[in-house]
Amino acid sequence: MAQRLNPAARDSAVGRVRMITTGVVALGLAGTMGLGFTIAEQVKADKAAKAQAQVTEDTTEVAQEEQLPQDQVPQAQVPQEQVPQEQVPQGQATPRQTPRKQATPGTTTPAPKPKPTPKPPVTSSGGS
């Protein structure tokens, strides 16, 4: 049964969707940056501790600048479950994997098995 929306309700719903999308993206970015910063700081602290120990053993050694090679920097990653899997692009470029390296969504997880049912159908799947 079709229900008509009044424009205010529709606008409100659209507004909520946009707000939530913006919030999720902002939280994701903030989380990524925060995690990256934290990890970088931890790595620096570990390195500094090791360097300090070396200085203690050999005071003639010149302290090297604390700089971690890029390939050793742990990449800040937001845990997968926190990343929206299908974001409607909002106009900004997002990192994207090469299509051929990634399977079609749903092809790597087991397919759900349809079941027989005595219930009348609520909708139809067919050609269109």
């Binding site: 049912t117 609520v122 909708t123 139809s124 799947s125 067919g126 050609g127 269109s128």
Partner: peptide
């Protein structure tokens, strides 16, 4: 579950 008819024409 959701009961769905599968047929040649979705209409």
């Amino acid at each position: 579950g959701w009961s769905v008819r599968v047929t040649a024409d979705h209409a």
